[in-house]
Design a protein around this nucleic acid. Structure first.
Length: 675
DNA sequence: GTTGCGTTTATTTTT
DNA sequence: TAAACGCAAC
């Protein structure tokens, strides 16, 4: 039996809830993962088979953590392995894969990641309105993605006809979708939408999946979009055993399609739902929570919660005011050094959080100056590793000749004399006959200057495909391909230095190692490639082993916690951000709709509640923005924190007093460094 | 294809 | 300010 007495009364109430819908409003640090894992363990103990339980998360990391914690609780790996725990996208993929026949899909159907799908949008935009090709494909891709998130089908898209991009999307979205289907490809959003459409289209399949799970749980429910809600609604259609956990006050992703009404209107969506609030916080001091509560209380449209904790101490929140942004960053760096020396903190106990990535630059400079080790979480797109995607493209084509994007990616890579002209002719030929590009290539093979190149391309692909079909070790088959196309020679030629070339070769080798591991697990190669597309966390950015200060955006900080947190740049136009304050004219919103800063406030709330013991909120009075020095106004959110929780530090004043000591210190420091 | 220059534009990001 | 982008020339 599971020992639910380890939980507080509200947690226990939620974890032991039986049949029917339940909404768990879990405040920051209130132990929501604990509730979900105990609930799963409790259901198992009650005799519910593991196969009948499904838990959905947003990230692979969250899914992994959940599975580990359940495994720890039930102490039976066999049982915990039978649970369905994964992201919405992984679940969608599982559905598509098992209904492959009903959908008429080839075994090697493709998953298009963001850059693949952007490429497909570009392709769909070709030829259309050729005169002004200055349209940004990314803007269209975003609209298509948002439409899919809102479960709007290609033919139903309307948008705002006054908006050029919306109007363009009306034309592009159906073409894009048709192109994907022609390639037997799905983008990330399709992984959620298409299963739902299949359920509606095919009653048998729909009934089967409605009966597949007896209990469904969804984490971070405030982040779900319309399409995801549809999927969940279907999965619990027949039994309504749905447990969702989330926090409306931490809804910060509506800009990418999350629909907070899902959590706000849960009781209406699922009549008779039980609602449990988790308000005891096990993370932060009373001071920090008081500040958080005061700030978030200014938002309307919330379920309403007041976090409390038993953790005392930590002192007041430090409100540091610098003259210039550079001074702010320098002070943060020095204070971090002070914390380590005075309070014996590890670097990794400390985080610096900011609204937008550009703000990190000044802090980075100062930390480097002070020799403080740091990592940036999230940051920019991690390097795409072109060479890995190239090899994957070859394999993708070998598994699915219709995967046009992959085909075009490597058709002339490494160069084999197939120029833009030839490709265009082949594409035109294929589209005219509504046939796959691969077949068109076969017909062009007989003539033209690119004849030899096309023939050799088809030969290597066919050879790889045949080898994979024949059950050859996929690593051997792929390695043979790499040799056939002389990939490593090309990498060596293209790279600037020997070490750069070696790194890229190593990247390909680690892909091969991954394929080998998958093969050892009896995972089919196609399945492994699809999983790889959905998995970004295996990249080495999560390598957080080292003791380093963490630099992270407020968005990226959600779900994390640190003993000491610095929230920097708490100024109007930074938080709340200028883009929220003055929506650009081309946007739909206008004077009639007052600007809504509630999501910015939630962002601030998320930041405050990351801190366990000590919180610093800092700002500057002047800052260089776009090459201009501008006067800054304190963030309105800062003013919402009661004064008695804050201790103000005037850094300009402090610096003036400290100048002699500082100069002395830097004098000795320079002495020591130069020897 | 790649380099270089002038121009433009400035959130947040996972799957 | 600075990086990302478009376009022209190699």
């Amino acid at each position: 039996m599971v020992d639910l007495s380890q939980l507080n009364p509200q947690q226990r109430d939620a974890a032991s809830h039986g049949d029917g819908p339940i909404l768990v409003l879990a405040g920051a640090g209130s132990g929501k993962t604990r509730v979900i894992t105990f609930r799963i363990a409790h259901l198992l103990a009650r005799g519910v088979p593991a196969k009948a339980i499904c838990a959905v998360t947003f990230t692979n990391k969250a899914a992994e953590e959940m599975r580990d914690r359940v495994a720890q609780l039930v102490r039976d790996r066999k049982v915990s392995d039978e649970l369905t725990i994964g992201t919405f996208h992984a679940l969608g993929l599982q559905i598509l894969r098992s209904e492959r026949a009903a959908l008429g899909l080839p075994r090697g159907f493709a998953i298009y990641d963001q850059s693949d799908s952007l490429g497909a949008v570009r392709e769909a935009m070709r030829g259309l309105r050729d005169g002004d090709r200055r349209y940004d494909a990314k803007a269209i891709a975003t609209r298509i993605s948002l439409a899919k998130n809102a479960f709007v089908a290609p033919d139903d898209y309307e948008g705002n006809s006054a908006d050029d991009y919306d109007a363009l999307t009306v034309e592009i979205y159906p073409r894009y979708q048709a192109a994907l289907r022609a390639c037997a490809a799905f983008d990330f959003d399709d992984l959620v939408c298409e299963p739902v459409r299949l359920f509606a289209r095919d009653a048998d399949v729909g009934a089967r999946w409605a009966a597949r799970f007896r209990f469904v749980m969804v984490d971070e429910f405030q982040d779900t979009n319309r399409a995801q809600l549809r999927m969940v609604q279907h999965l619990v259609r027949d039994h309504r055993n749905l447990c969702v956990v989330g926090d409306d006050d931490q809804s910060i992703y509506s800009w990418r399609g999350a629909d907070p009404t899902n959590i706000l209107e849960f009781a209406r969506l699922f009549p008779g739902a039980k609602i449990v609030k988790l308000e005891q916080n096990y993370r932060s001091t009373t001071t920090i929570l008081a500040a958080a509560n005061e700030v978030i209380a200014n938002n309307k449209d919330r379920h309403g919660k007041k976090l409390w904790s038993k953790i005392a101490g930590g002192g007041p929140i430090i409100h540091a005011v610098a003259h210039a942004a550079e001074d702010e960053a320098r002070w943060v760096a020095r204070e971090i050094c002070g914390l380590r020396e005075r309070d014996r903190l590890a670097w990794s106990d400390i985080a610096v959080m900011y609204r937008s990535n550009v703000q990190a630059k000044l802090v980075e400079d100062e930390l480097r100056q002070a020799s403080v080790p740091y990592v940036m979480y999230g940051g920019q797109q991690f390097f795409e590793r072109k060479e890995v995607k190239d090899v994957m493209a070859y394999v993708r084509v070998a598994l699915n000749r219709r995967d046009e994007l992959a085909l075009r990616r490597v058709l002339n890579y490494p160069a084999r004399g197939i120029g833009a002209m030839t490709i265009e002719r082949a594409v035109a030929h294929a589209h005219a006959r509504r046939a796959p590009l691969w077949d068109a290539l076969g017909e062009l093979d007989a003539a033209g200057p690119a004849r030899a190149g096309i023939a050799s391309f088809r030969r290597v692909i066919d050879k790889l495909g045949a080898a994979l079909d024949a059950g050859t070790d996929p690593v051997d088959a792929t390695r043979a391909l790499i040799e056939d196309v002389k990939l490593y020679d090309d990498l060596r030629d293209a790279a600037g230095s020997l070490s750069a070339a070696q790194r890229r070769i190593d990247n390909v080798e680690s892909l091969l190692a991954g394929i080998a591991r998958a093969h050892a697990r009896h995972t089919p190669l196609g399945d492994y490639l699809k999983a790889l597309a959905l998995d970004t966390s295996s990249d080495d950015r999560t390598a957080d082993g080292g003791d380093k200060v963490v630099l992270v955006t407020l968005h990226g900080a959600k779900g994390l916690e640190f003993p000491v947190c610095f929230m920097i740049g708490l100024e109007e136009e930074l938080l709340p951000h200028a883009r929220t304050l003055n929506p650009i004219a081309t946007d739909v919103t206008d004077a009639e709709h007052a600007v809504d800063i509630s999501e910015e406030r939630r962002l601030c709330y998320v930041g405050i509640t990351r801190a366990q013991r000590k919180l610093y909120v800092t700002r500057a009075c002047t800052r260089v923005t776009r090459g201009r020095t501008v006067q800054r106004t304190p963030s309105r959110f800062l003013l919402e924190i009661p004064d008695d929780l804050l201790e103000v530090r005037d850094l300009a004043e402090e610096a003036r007093q400290r100048v002699p000591a500082d100069e002395l210190r830097s004098f000795f420091a320079s002495f020591a460094v130069e020897e």
